[in-house]
Design a protein around this nucleic acid. Structure first.
Ligand SMILES: [Mn+2]
Ligand SMILES: [Mn+2]
Ligand SMILES: [Mn+2]
Ligand SMILES: [Mn+2]
Lengths: 217, 217
DNA sequence: TTATTTTTTTAGATAAATCTAAAAATAATT
DNA sequence: AATTATTTTTAGATTTATCTAAAAAAATAA
């Protein structure tokens, strides 16, 4: 078993290696964990000792298969708890992250399997992120960022790649929530902002916002 | 805020001072926490520093009002989570304690209030223990141990004062679960064992078992 | 290729929670 | 009241996860 701290490191390394498939840098981990590079080096050595990461000095880390399994288990728990909080306890999608950040460390196999059952085996969390099954397998899906959808195309919002409360509240105000259908009317050359048609109304969003919305055609 | 460890100490001190209203002894805490007396002394000093306990060297500890409030908050969380695990996730009453022991430390006021709402504001946990309300108030109730009920009297099981899995499984096998009506037919002089009538069948239990069942007339 | 900047690691400290062994205080027995 | 037994505390270590400051390596720029 891992400590909470070790689990948080594993999850951060996992997420960073999703974004960039190369070895994960010490500094990148330090920033995500809001800690110091020296602390990261200490912890990496410990995780390497436990065979959860492969580590070469000055060359960053990658998860071993055991490390990835552990990381995915935590991601699974985090996302299932988020579904519980939104679906059952009626939290808003911008309120659940911090609580799930604690709940993900509760250590009981039976608990998470029963929770999954209770929730009806959901495939995505409230932010559209996929939930791996018991074996750690993600359902394949073809998403793209709204920014890349192209003028004239219609898509359905299936997720977001930014989870901060201000961003999520902003989307909600604009009516851009999961499952909503939209059409790209215009992409401005000047600043990359995007004009959308949503429920027969025109909505303008910045390039930055568009880059954090996932859609499928 | 308190650490998990501090919270566990506060809860143990609270429970011990319920059983015996005098100051709680260092050794009693050490036994319950499965730790050493020296460690308890260290932690007591820290809790006294934080004004959560009153402490006189060699004279044991008592909770301050702030300490009691903190302890009751943890008890509330523990018991509400147990209700969730049994009522919603279909765990057995002997399986929930260890999981609740972790969940009780999740730190979110909104979470516990919404959970309480979701569960329909239960008044007792799966073992019959009372759940304090948001303000820390317990509903008054007049229980007695089955052992003290007296020959010929009829009562309803409302709780247990022993939470180990073997004990709870034993009760279940005997049909002695919460809400069941029973009549005392005989109390044996020799060993204090009790003969009960439960659902028109005779059930014999030892004195030790009878001492851990709470009933009301 | 040399110099500069950035990244990463080491060395050494600190704080929290624990432990063992020994000393001190209190309680119980002669 | 003196002795013995029990309980509790102190002293000093250990383990885990941090940190700062300085050294070392790697990457970038001149
Ligand atoms: Mn976490
Ligand atoms: Mn999420
Ligand atoms: Mn606990
Ligand atoms: Mn209980």
């Amino acid at each position: 078993m891992q400590s909470f701290t070790e689990e948080n490191y594993l999850k951060v390394i996992y997420h960073l290696s999703q974004i960039n498939p190369n070895a994960v840098q010490t500094n990148a981990i330090a920033e995500k964990m809001a800690t110091r590079a020296a602390s990261v080096t200490d912890m990496i050595k410990k995780l390497a000792e436990k065979k959860l990461v492969d580590y070469i000095k000055y060359q960053g880390v990658t998860l071993t298969p055991a490390g990835e399994t552990a990381a995915i288990r935590i991601v699974r728990k985090h996302r299932l708890w988020e579904v519980f909080l939104v679906e059952k306890l009626k939290f808003k999608w911008d309120e659940v992250h911090d609580i799930a950040e604690e709940l993900e460390h509760i250590n009981s196999f039976a608990l998470i399997e029963r929770l999954d059952d209770f929730l009806g085996f959901p495939k995505r969390d409230p932010h559209g992120d996929p939930i791996p099954n018991k074996e750690g397998i993600f359902e394949p899906s073809e998403n793209m960022h709204l920014h890349q959808l192209g003028k004239g195309y219609t898509g359905i919002i299936i997720g977001v790649t930014e989870h901060s409360s201000p961003f999520l509240k902003h989307l909600e105000k604009l009516g851009l929530t999961i499952g909503v259908t939209l059409t790209v009317q215009e992409i401005t050359d000047f600043d990359g902002s995007v004009e959308l048609l949503v429920n027969s109304k025109t909505v303008n969003i910045s390039k930055e916002v568009a880059q954090h919305i996932l859609v499928k055609k």
